[in-house]
Design a protein around this nucleic acid. Structure first.
Lengths: 112, 112
DNA sequence: TCACATTGCTTACCTTACGTAAGCTGCTTA
DNA sequence: TAAGCAGCTTACGTAAGGTAAGCAATGTGA
């Protein structure tokens, strides 16, 4: 969809669909945001995201690794998880989400 | 996190978390993208998104309406769903996702 | 006008994903 | 050497999603 907007269909893109399912899957956002914020250790990420369990963090990190978004690093004795270049490239997405999150909270404020 | 990066915690934000769960919930992305592409009718959106069922589309549209992202319009006999201003403001997010989707597909291509 | 199709839903049922809790191995510190 | 933490895995119940059918209201065609 560019200049000559027609309200037709065919605005579906499987690559987009997959990407937003990866980013938007439950807990994926806060996990990746924690890692963009500099956290690399399992327990640091878990402790930074309220409600996130070991099980889900483990599951997400594994699938991120399989996708090439995160790299599991066992060079030192401590295990570290690092964002790959691909992983770091989600930052603009999250910046845009932050902007929208503020708008959303104006219209539909969070409880508390 | 800005210039003076410290790999500390406290990069968790509940507004961000909520926003990315709304956008990233299953099917939400493709539904909103279809609507940004100009589709307003239930069956047009459903037919544009492969795999999306009536049940889920109905459920998502209802929750979008409750959040103020979508407006249900019954002025004419045909029912139309329109993005509100808030809804239209997700566009920058989706633009950023599209860019990342291309990067992701280079590293982890989709099957077929 | 009477059968048939379409739109925008809802309901019922089963499967997959997630929440919760416990446990377990390897290493460290007291 | 007992206790503790980090990074997992396993087991089990609940919630979300997939699949399919149905259904009232309107349109359409013969």
């Amino acid at each position: 969809m560019s200049a000559n907007e027609e309200p037709n269909g065919e605005c579906y893109c499987p690559e987009f669909h997959r990407a937003i399912e990866v980013i938007g899957k439950r807990w994926s956002g806060p996990i990746l945001q924690s890692m963009l914020g500099g956290l690399t250790r399992f327990s640091d990420i878990r402790d930074n995201v309220p409600g996130l369990s070991d099980r889900l963090l483990s599951e997400r990190l594994k699938s991120f690794e399989e996708l090439g978004v995160v790299e599991r690093c066992t060079a030192t004795r401590d295990i570290h998880y690092h964002l790959t270049d691909l992983g770091k490239q989600v930052e603009p997405v999250f910046d845009a989400v932050e902007v929208w999150a503020i708008q959303l909270s104006k219209v539909a404020p969070l409880p508390d």
